Computed example of a mutant assay.
Amino acid sequence: MKKRLAINEWNEDSRPRERLLTIGATALTNAELLAILIHTGTPSQNAVEIMQGVLDTCNGSLDKLGKMSYEDLTAFKGIGQAKAVTIMAACEFGRRRMKKTDDKDCTFDSSEKLFGELLKPLFWDLSEEECRVVLLNQSLRLISVELIGIGGLTFVSADIRKILRLALQKNATTIVLAHNHPSGSVRPGREDDSLTRQLQEACKIMNIRLLDHLILGGNRYYSYADEGRL
């Protein structure tokens, strides 16, 4: 098999790192940017070719790349532990960059703020359903966001006590329930409606305010409060 030229054997004006320094990151392809992260290739493929192959399996979608697991990435020839971890870390930085404010300094008084400034980065790229509770103080400032469970709402209905226990332990006076639909649909189902009713009734007994229940799907969300259902 003919040995491919390593990137450091290319002309300087063709190397991704040098191109970034001379003409800027925006001029590079996604494969070139990713090649800078993994640094080296194999005897049969350089770093750009390896990452182009990964992107091809994602149909060029960076969203799909961000959902790849460690096992998915290391299945590609030329991507070992260090390279897979580097790619995953870069994707996580991208998610965290979505945050627009310091959470602790923001008043979460609307579904728009909750979604855009707090919840969207937490749920972005998830391949399975997760449920979290947002704990707020009396001024609607963030105390914490707690994971309730993974894998669907059927388990959550029996775990309302956990949600309330967390609120009491953290001295939260207001809570927001949030979960995602990996399918991208934000239409609430019967389980969503049932859980919302049960949690609302339990919160009233404990003198805790259920501010909202948000269902997230990609760039969209459904708000029970906005729809007048709370």
Rank of each mutant, 00 (worst) to 15 (best):
K2M: 14
K3M: 13
K3F: 03
K3H: 08
E12S: 14
S14D: 14
R19E: 04
L21T: 07
T22C: 10
I23V: 14
A31P: 07
A35G: 07
L37N: 05
L37W: 08
L37Y: 09
I38S: 00
V48I: 12
I50Y: 00
G53H: 09
G53W: 03
L55Q: 04
D56V: 05
G60L: 09
S61D: 07
D63W: 10
K64D: 11
M68I: 06
K77R: 14
K77C: 07
G78K: 00
A82C: 10
A89C: 10
E92S: 14
E92G: 13
R95I: 06
R95C: 10
R97K: 13
T101K: 12
T101G: 09
D102S: 12
D105T: 11
F108N: 01
S110P: 05
E112K: 12
E112C: 10
L114G: 00
G116P: 07
E117P: 03
L118T: 00
P121L: 05
P121M: 06
F123S: 03
D125G: 03
D125V: 10
C131M: 12
R132M: 06
L136I: 02
N137V: 05
S139I: 09
S139C: 11
I148W: 00
G149H: 05
G151A: 13
L153F: 02
L153H: 02
T154D: 15
F155Y: 12
A158W: 07
R161W: 08
R161V: 13
R161T: 13
R165H: 13
R165L: 12
A167L: 01
A167S: 13
L168F: 06
Q169K: 13
I175E: 02
I175L: 11
I175Y: 03
L177C: 06
H179I: 02
H181Y: 06
S183N: 08
S183A: 13
V186Y: 07
R187Q: 15
R187M: 14
G189P: 01
L195I: 12
T196V: 12
R197A: 13
C203F: 04
I208R: 04
L211C: 05
L214R: 00
G217A: 07
R220T: 07
R220S: 11
A225G: 07
D226Q: 11
R229Q: 08
